Amino acid sequence: MKRVYVNEKWCLGCHLCEYNCAFANSGCDDMVKALKNITINPRIRIEEKGNVSFAVSCRHCDEPLCVKGCITGALTVDQDGVITINQDKCVGCFTCILSCPYGAIMPSSTGHAIQKCELCINNAGGEPACVKGCPNRAIVFEERSEEA
């Protein structure tokens, strides 16, 4: 399965992945109209430790603890291995947030209980918006072997 991978050696900490993610999930056609004068709440975020920057997003685990911990079945793994959210089933218990070992699930600011990366399957098609918008190619969308 193709997943988003980050090479922290190449990450500039520019946060463009966050802006591209927020725009891709905004439902708008114009980035300026979608993001101007708002606090963005992307499904990927940049963490900075010392002089190292890296992006944190859902890893679409082979054995996802978030899905196992979801009490309503709102989180599921689709046939392609992408972990998706059914917002109609989510009751906002946040068990998935507590279960994720990577901190990749977060509360939503859009009226839904939670949000996480779904690889832009519902909006961008093909390559995720964070990957497309990374100026340094620090974020890639590729399939890797288990040993990588």
Rank of each mutant, 00 (worst) to 15 (best):
T39W: 12
V32I: 14
I71W: 10
G133R: 08
G103Q: 03
T39N: 14
N122R: 06
Y102G: 10
Q87H: 15
V77I: 10
M106F: 07
D30L: 04
I114D: 01
V32N: 09
T110A: 13
A104F: 09
E118C: 04
C96F: 08
R43V: 07
T95A: 06
I40C: 10
D62M: 12
I46A: 11
C58G: 03
P107G: 13
C61Q: 05
K68A: 11
Y102S: 08
E118Q: 11
S108T: 08
T72N: 06
C134L: 01
I46R: 12
C61G: 11
P42A: 00
K68G: 05
V67N: 11
C117P: 06
T84W: 00
E48K: 15
I97F: 03
C120V: 05
P107H: 05
I40R: 11
F94E: 08
L75V: 01
K36R: 13
V77R: 09
C90T: 05
A74W: 02
V82K: 00
G69A: 10
V67E: 06
E47V: 15
E47W: 08
N136R: 11
E63S: 12
A34D: 04
L65W: 12
V56R: 05
T76F: 15
P101L: 04
A34F: 09
C70K: 02
R43N: 09
A124Y: 10
D88G: 14
T95V: 06
K89A: 07
P135S: 06
G126L: 03
E47L: 10
K68V: 07
K116A: 03
C90P: 05
K132W: 04
I105W: 13
I85K: 02
T76P: 11
N136K: 12
N51K: 12
T39L: 12
R59E: 08
C93W: 05
E63I: 08
M31I: 14
S109H: 13
I97C: 04
R59N: 10
I85C: 01
I83S: 03
R137T: 15
I85Q: 00
P107E: 08
N51F: 12
L119R: 00
I38N: 11
I38V: 15
C66L: 00
D62G: 15
A34V: 02
V77T: 13
V82L: 01
G111Y: 00
C70M: 04
K49V: 14
K49Y: 13
A104K: 02
Q87Y: 15
N37S: 14
G126P: 02
E47S: 12
N41E: 09
C134Y: 01
S57I: 11
V67I: 07
P64C: 08
A129T: 06
I38P: 12
E48N: 15
C90Y: 08
A34I: 03
R137H: 15
C120G: 11
K116L: 06
P128A: 00
